[in-house]
Design a protein around this nucleic acid. Sequence first.
DNA 1: CCAATAGTGTCTATCAGACAGTATGTC
DNA 2: GACATACTGTCTGATAGACACTATTGG
Lengths: 216, 216
Amino acid sequence: LSSVEWRDSAGHALADYRRPSLAVDVALLTVVDGRLRVLLHEKHDGQWSLPGRFVRIDETLRDAALLALREKVGVTGQEPEQLRVFDALDRDSRGRVVTVAHVDLVPEKLLETATGELRPVAELPQLAFHHREIVEKAVERVRAEYRERPDPRRLLSEPFTLFELQRVHEAVLGERLQKDTFRRRMLPGLQETDTVQRGTVGKPARLFQRHPPTNG
Amino acid sequence: LSSVEWRDSAGHALADYRRPSLAVDVALLTVVDGRLRVLLHEKHDGQWSLPGRFVRIDETLRDAALLALREKVGVTGQEPEQLRVFDALDRDSRGRVVTVAHVDLVPEKLLETATGELRPVAELPQLAFHHREIVEKAVERVRAEYRERPDPRRLLSEPFTLFELQRVHEAVLGERLQKDTFRRRMLPGLQETDTVQRGTVGKPARLFQRHPPTNG
DNA sequence: CCAATAGTGTCTATCAGACAGTATGTC
DNA sequence: GACATACTGTCTGATAGACACTATTGG
């Protein structure tokens, strides 16, 4: 530890300056009833907001994001991903807080114990801070991922039919898709299994898995 | 200011916890001699690194990034843009520092007063921390922008010919381009002027400007 | 055989990439 | 007129989107 590195050109140590606090906010998305939704919780003052938390000195952003989900809304997150940093000087009336916005998308099953409300992302209430912008960016991010690859956030459990996959993608993207185009776009990322769905009317659908990581 | 908001569920005030320090690092890119380069500076211990700086309580990230460029390498930046946050617990041997990586790309003209070295991004020396990853992400970002639009970071001063524009894009992308394809890709983002280049051999080239913002 | 759903052949429009032509200036 | 460079018509191959056809099951 070279204490000289802690000093700037004027000879002041880092501790001499007041520092911003660092926080995380998480837009936790899921699909319920065929609609993409975000988990909001109501604060003491009645405003809706995303779960968030200050980052402590021994935590990574990922840890802080998962803890925020656990503590604020009682949910086990999966893989929170950074969206961007919000740093406006007047963001937070409590003082200077710089926040790293995150997104996560998890199956409904993981939200059984959740507190808060799952609002459709197309019908957001008034949100605190810049949380509306965070949700919009989060939605944009997962939609871009779902346009590229079959169910990259693993909402579906394997194996699944292309029809089930299409329903999930339609919910995330918020639009109807054509089955033949969808099939051809997704096939390169899928692994055919040797079994088909049983007990349904019509030609039985083939069951698929996501591609193993050994295939680029 | 509601002091109750500063407390967590256990009743501790924010100030009770030790907090990470927040910093910015900037990959400042430019084009010299037809090659994309990044400005590095050598620290006291002889290691190469990107210009960086701690963020103070009354600064935005943008301000901190511009100050880092001014103080560490004597350069006036233009529009530093966030890349992502690096937060590994052991990143910085001096303590817990979370850093927001930025990218900026400016014309060579603004670097006349710069201290440090402009190294081609294809031949990086050993860098401190995760700075190599930052440079790679920075390069990726500006390349994506230059594939979409003509000179989005305004390296060229207007008006310019398509040939001049192509040289700049080739330098940023690090590959040769075909002039006819390039022309057709860039034309929608350009505004033709009514003048042509004079004093050159061959058919004079038309001069262009970037599209005014009134055109999507 | 019929109904219903899965899966596919193929047409079209679009676009990137490339070649080789035409246009228009200097000398 | 020769030459050099700017600009463009057009061919090709890849791809997304759409339509309508064929395939395969349960009843």
